[in-house]
């Protein structure tokens, strides 16, 4: 864990209620599947946001405005600083992916799939991506995934873009392993539909985000795990719904 003062480079709307924020600062220790915990002026607890992309000195986050904290974030301007705890969580294990991993992201669960796709690519594995949204106006990053060379499917619940339905309606594919992040009902549906092992990224309300308060613990087949420290990524075999 590091405590880094990032400087906002850009903060732009990329879809309905959805913003992409690029920050400059030290990203040492950050890995795909991890998250950062952001201190926002006027809010007591930090806000956990997944790592969407990073270079040695830039960090990209994508967040959906759902409450006062994320709304305040959406109003922040380039040049402003943001206090973050970085390097939080276990991250994805790419050693188990096989050569044809499937990435399944839903809404605000899409961002961590992007940096994961890049890491897999660097390891010589080309992944297929399924990106699920409610409607066309909420969709984002299809072009970015395609630019990485990923075979990319977009689903919308209302059918206004891509495949009508949920991510599971696009899952009849040939894959060696999968990674998924999104709302819990989606994770459950993916769990039931999937035919291989895989890794799931979970969310929980957090007090600290670095393992100290036991605020975020869940039960797994291998004992109690803190989503912030022993997660947020859990493997299919250990999940207890």
């Amino acid at each position: 864990m590091y405590n880094v003062d990032f400087k906002i480079i850009s903060n732009r709307k990329i879809a309905k209620n959805t913003f992409e924020m690029t920050l400059s600062g030290d990203t040492r220790g950050i890995a795909p599947g991890q998250f950062v915990n952001l201190k926002l002026d006027g809010f007591y607890l930090r806000r956990p946001i997944s790592v969407c992309d990073y270079t040695p000195d830039t960090l990209t986050l994508i967040y959906k405005v759902v409450g006062h904290g994320t709304e305040a974030m959406s109003k922040m301007a380039p040049g402003e600083t943001l206090d973050a705890l970085t390097g939080l969580g276990n991250g994805y294990d790419t050693s188990r992916s096989g050569d044809r991993p499937l990435l399944i992201g839903g809404g605000a669960g899409v961002p961590p799939m992007y940096v994961l796709a890049k890491k897999l690519l660097a390891e010589g594995k080309k992944s297929t991506a399924i990106l699920g949204f409610n409607s066309a106006d909420e969709a984002f990053y299809e072009a970015e995934f395609k630019a990485l060379g990923c075979e990319t499917y977009v689903t919308t619940a209302d059918g206004s873009y891509g495949i009508r339905g949920f991510v599971t309606d696009a899952m009849d594919l040939d894959y060696t392993y999968f990674y998924t992040c999104g709302p819990e009902p989606m994770l459950r549906a993916v769990y039931n539909k999937s035919v291989t092992s895989g890794q799931f990224s979970f969310e929980e309300r957090m007090g600290c985000g670095f393992g100290a308060c036991m605020g975020c613990t869940c039960k797994t087949k291998y004992g109690h795990k803190r989503i912030c420290k022993d997660g947020p990524v859990l493997t299919r075999e250990e999940i207890v719904w």
Partner: peptide, 16 residues
């Protein structure tokens, strides 16, 4: 059972 944490003005609630 979770959720066990909630934010408040200048503080937090825990039910760990």
């Amino acid at each position: 059972e979770p959720p066990r944490i909630a934010e408040t003005a200048s503080g937090m609630l825990n039910a760990v």
